[in-house]
Structure formats: structure tokens, C-alpha cells
């Protein structure tokens, strides 16, 4: 009996060393219904709502934009450390003859140097993490900047160009800080699934430019800042 146990243990050790089983693994409970249980909401799943932009009409502006408000020097900064500020940098960089500064983590004390500030609103946990910034710190920086801009009277553009996936609690908090001082909203329209931005613009008689894709920011920047 002892020999059989020894042989059995030796065989177990050998098979354990090989550890390359190819047998199809099966769940003890069988195939679960993927629709059962508490399915989470996929933030990237499309939400049906009436969009004014389309493949055929990429840019729609509601209201009148007063271009004379948007004087230099211009600053692009980020509230939320997503790559949307960098997208605006690329877009404005393609408009000839515009001098501007791009600083994703600008601070309140720098605001006195600018007459127009474009704020890319949209929180990215990856962006904040990569920059080593906590949510509270980003909110505090945003509040300080908005307070300073109230003092300086600079023109503010609220740019939410990250689309639906950029919406979220922190993004909405940041947007709510910027909107009261904004003179123009630029919005990638799929982020407007609850009509938050168009309703705000309508209620406050604020011009809003809706775009279909992030690359439309080039045309929008050209329309606003182009000579």
C-alpha cells in the first residue's frame, strides 16, 4: 500500500511540474447567462439622443460668437489632465499667425498674463495619475484659476472635446466651475447626451459650438482665431 501511495505522490509531482494542461476548463456551474446578475453600464456604449451634428454636418454653432472678445495673449490649459488640452494645442498650432501658450498645469498666479484662456474640461484618471495629481488638488487648482480669472476679466472658453467617455462626476464638477464665466462653449456633441451643455447655453444666452469629431477643433480654432 505504501508503495502505491509513494508512486501516486511521485506521479502527482511529475504532473504538477509539467503544468501545461490543455484540457478545456469548464465552469462547475455551467454556462452562466451573461445578461443575468448586476451588469455594469458600459460608459462607451452609444446613448441615443437627438444630435445636431452628423457625418455630413460636422460643426453646428448655436448663437452668435463675438470674435472681438478673443484677444491675445492666449493660454490653453487643462482642468482634469486629459489629453484634450493637447488636442487643442495641436489644433490651434495649425492656425497660422496665432501666438499662444500651452500649459496643462498652469496655476492661478499665471492668469494675469492672458486675455483669453481656453480651458479643456475633462477629467482623466490616467492623466491625473500620470501627473501625480489627486482629484482634490485638481479641483483646488481649478477653483483658484477661476477666482483669478474673475479678477482679471479674461475671456474664458469652455472646451469639452473628449466626448461621452469624458463625462463623469469630476468632469462635471470641473465643467460647472468653468461654465459661469465662459463666453463660449465648444463641445464634442456626444457628450451632450443629457443636454446638459445646450440647456445651460440656452438658459444663459451663451453661444455654443457643437462638433462631431475631435479633429473639427482645427476648423473651430481657425474660425475663432484665424486672421
Amino acid at each position: 500500500m505504501k508503495k502505491f501511495i509513494v508512486l501516486f505522490l511521485a506521479a502527482c509531482m511529475l504532473l504538477g511540474l509539467a503544468a501545461c494542461g490543455r484540457q478545456e476548463s469548464t465552469s462547475p456551474t455551467g454556462q452562466a447567462d451573461p445578461n443575468a446578475g448586476t451588469a455594469a453600464v458600459d460608459p462607451s456604449a452609444p446613448i441615443e439622443f437627438d444630435m445636431q451634428t452628423s457625418e455630413e454636418k460636422h460643426i453646428v454653432t448655436i448663437g452668435t460668437i463675438d470674435k472681438s472678445l478673443f484677444e491675445g495673449p492666449i493660454l490653453i490649459t487643462s482642468f482634469g489632465q486629459s489629453t484634450d488640452a493637447s488636442t487643442l494645442d495641436t489644433a490651434l498650432g495649425r492656425v497660422s499667425g496665432v501666438n499662444y501658450t500651452y500649459k496643462a498645469q498652469a496655476i492661478a498666479d499665471e492668469m494675469a498674463s492672458y486675455k483669453t484662456v481656453i480651458i479643456a474640461v475633462g477629467a482623466s484618471t490616467k492623466g491625473l495619475g500620470a501627473a501625480g495629481i489627486k482629484d482634490d488638488e485638481e479641483l483646488a487648482r481649478a477653483q483658484a484659476i477661476m477666482a483669478k480669472l474673475k479678477e482679471t476679466g479674461a475671456t474664458v472658453i469652455c472646451a469639452h472635446i473628449g466626448g461621452q467617455t469624458r463625462r463623469g462626476a469630476l468632469s462635471d464638477k470641473l465643467a460647472d466651475l468653468v461654465l459661469p464665466q465662459a463666453k463660449l462653449i465648444i463641445l464634442k456633441e456626444d457628450a451632450n447626451f443629457d443636454y446638459k451643455f445646450t440647456k445651460y447655453a440656452e438658459a444663459n444666452n451663451l453661444p455654443i459650438t457643437l462638433i462631431f469629431a475631435a479633429k473639427d477643433t482645427v476648423q473651430v480654432m481657425n474660425d475663432i482665431f484665424g486672421k
Partner: peptide
């Protein structure tokens, strides 16, 4: 901007 017309893709910043 060009790739988005063909596939879902994002750009992420390299963490410093």
C-alpha cells in the same frame, strides 16, 4: 484624428 474614422482608439500621455 484620421484613425478615429476607422477604429476606436485613444491617445494617452506618457507618464513622466
Amino acid at each position: 484624428w484620421e484613425l478615429e474614422e476607422q477604429m476606436k482608439i485613444t491617445v494617452e500621455a506618457s507618464p513622466k
